[in-house]
């Protein structure tokens, strides 16, 4: 799959923002006044910035409002509803903390759960696609949720929880990669089933329909950089988990905490890039590619 920067930025930043909102909603921490304002500002910049970024890959962003209509069947539509609901609920809870110094706990809990549900809806957009075997696994939502929670714990300064979640992310990430590398073969879809010609002999793509490229090849058959995948996986693990865990195990100051957060975000970007770039869409089979 083509790793569109707008979608990578969106899933990474929004995941972090909603993760932070989750912890804020559950009063971890429950700051007041200016400190509360700064916490909520960071969360909203990440969550809303990510959502705005996602509109850049649309052909007609001016019609984006129509995406709220099909919540009965479409995870993209559900994501839109959940995001708006989470942001509004948390804004009410945040306003209480910032302006009145009051934490209305039930509103925070609802907002926190809606934030997590938004991340789940995002992950389901990918998980539901049978056409991309690497994504078509419960590991996809698990990974998205763990990334979001670990980032949120890191941003909200929950050291012990962050350590636990970062290690969980590492385990889930490695499991996802190992499973993903065999997903296409295990899906049972190949050029033989794609063309139905397998019963007559071994099938080989002889000629593509056109000499040039097309939308399908640009969007679904992205192979650039896959050869560096192994190195990038290690880099991602070090940045996402290694650096923050090391820093959190030592003494945490504002500066080292910032380094841990930035390293984590950079690592998630790499992981998310791999998530797209390594995903094989089965339409590539028709072109003799993967």
């Amino acid at each position: 799959m083509h790793p569109a920067p707008s979608v990578i930025i969106f899933t990474t930043l929004s995941g972090l923002g909603f993760g932070l909102l989750f912890f804020l909603g559950f009063g971890m921490p429950a700051p007041k006044g200016l400190v509360a304002f700064i916490f909520f500002a960071i969360a909203y910049v990440l969550a809303v910035g990510g959502l705005l970024s996602s509109t850049f890959h649309l052909g007609h962003p001016e019609r984006a409002i129509k995406a709220f209509s099909q919540w009965k069947t479409s995870w993209l539509s559900r994501e839109a509803w959940l995001a708006v609901a989470a942001l509004i609920t948390m804004a009410i809870y945040g306003a209480g903390l910032v302006f009145y110094g009051v934490a209305v706990a039930p509103i925070g809990w609802i907002g926190g759960l809606l934030s997590l549900a938004t991340v789940y809806a995002t992950s389901m957009i990918y998980r539901q696609l049978k056409t991309v075997p690497r994504w078509n696994t419960p590991m996809t939502p698990l990974l998205f949720l763990l990334f979001s929670l670990a980032g949120g714990a890191l941003l909200s300064g929950q050291v012990q929880i962050a350590l636990l979640l970062l290690v969980s992310v590492g385990i889930a990430q490695i499991a996802y990669w190992i499973g993903g590398d065999q997903a296409l073969e295990k899906s049972g879809t190949n050029l033989s089933t794609a063309t139905g010609l397998g019963r007559n002999g071994a099938v080989r793509a002889f000629e593509p329909p056109h000499t040039g490229t097309n939308y399908l090849l640009r969007e679904f058959v992205y192979v650039v950089g896959r050869k560096h995948a192994a190195k990038l996986r290690i880099i991602s693990l070090i940045l996402t988990i290694g650096t923050p865990v090391l820093i959190l195990s030592l003494t945490v100051t504002h500066v080292t905490a910032l380094i841990a957060v930035l390293s984590h975000i950079a690592g998630v970007f790499v992981s998310r890039w791999l998530f797209f770039a390594q995903a094989e869409h089965i339409v590539g089979l028709y072109y003799g590619k993967r």
Binding site: N214, L216, E219
Partner: peptide
């Protein structure tokens, strides 16, 4: 259509461009 491309992602046959 907002041109999000998700339907083309969901199609196994490359029928949508």
């Amino acid at each position: 259509c907002i041109g999000c491309g998700l339907c083309a992602w969901a199609c196994p046959y490359g029928a949508r461009e």
